[in-house]
Design a protein around this nucleic acid. Structure first.
Lengths: 164, 164
DNA sequence: TATTGTTATACTCTATAACTATA
DNA sequence: TATAGTTATAGAGTATAACAATA
């Protein structure tokens, strides 16, 4: 138990919370370095590319993408401009709704993603899973998934934030 | 299982990892808002104050504090200047080693911390623990702690980064 | 009128390297 | 020479509000 925990609460819940926070921050540090080294992309850009890669035809509407990655629309425009300049993504006007813009991952974007994923998974494996058994991983995943679902219901979407 | 997971790996480990990432990001969003609303401090500032509050006599050397919160020294100087201007922290030259500076939390800093902690704990409780039993919390804490310890051993300290 | 995306703008934060003082 | 902390600087990223185009 770290001393920080004593300040805010020495109970099990505080332990779980601070372990989560520190684990994620350390992981972020290692992942940022790996992604930059292996593919010249930031973590945010990696997440955006991965989101697009799995979407049908590699396409997502800008607003939906912003909601998915929890950023403002202007923030997404900023990142999309950078990814477009790097040739990893392109933007197309929608045909059904002329207001909408669809972000599409390019072939080069998919290649770049494949290029960084092995290193990314290696970091996650070494940092998180080498110290857990398969069954422990399963139990961890179940609990984190319950927490994630709960938190999703507590945070409004970017469209809702704009209105409210 | 989100579609993002499919892109990078649909296995249990990816599930655990992405659940961790999204849970922490959502939690961060909620905590930032709460801390700003209840006490006008950022999450980083909250962590710095909490670290000092629990240290002996509320004191820590700047470099040690930087290592604890995983920031560069210049980044810590920036935050310390802001916290000092807000009257929540003060800096003193060390008497043993004239090169060192000790950061000390002020009485007002402690009051501010007490002011935000209830809301902070409420957010954590609602977001993470209302969906878990006490035993599940215990199991979660154990696994996250193992991961944290592992990750700590993988990330060099700020002093080590400076040298290397 | 409401919604989509971009832009203008301003601000926060971070790190690197140079610098000062001390060990 | 090495270390502690600050500062100068520059850059990355973010969000809010105003805007143009479309529904």
């Amino acid at each position: 138990m770290s001393e920080f925990e004593v300040a805010v609460g020495a109970d099990l819940r505080s332990q779980a919370y601070f372990a989560l926070a520190e684990a994620y921050n350390l992981l972020q540090l290692l992942m940022d370095e790996q992604l930059r080294r292996d593919g010249g992309v930031t973590y945010v850009q990696f997440v955006l590319l991965a989101q697009l890669a799995q979407a049908p035809q590699g396409r997502l509407r800008m607003t939906d993408l912003a909601d998915t990655v929890l950023h403002s629309r202007s923030g997404l425009t900023y990142q999309a401009t950078r990814l477009e300049a790097a040739g990893l993504l392109r933007r197309e006007r929608s045909e059904e709704d002329e207001r909408s813009v669809t972000a599409v991952i390019t072939d080069e974007g998919r290649r770049r993603l494949e290029q960084v994923i092995p290193g990314h998974q290696a970091v996650v494996q070494a940092g998180m899973f080498d110290v857990l058994s398969d069954n422990q991983v399963k139990e961890l995943a179940e609990k984190l998934d319950a927490i994630r679902t709960r938190l999703r219901s507590m945070v409004p979407s970017s469209a809702q934030r704009r209105r409210g």
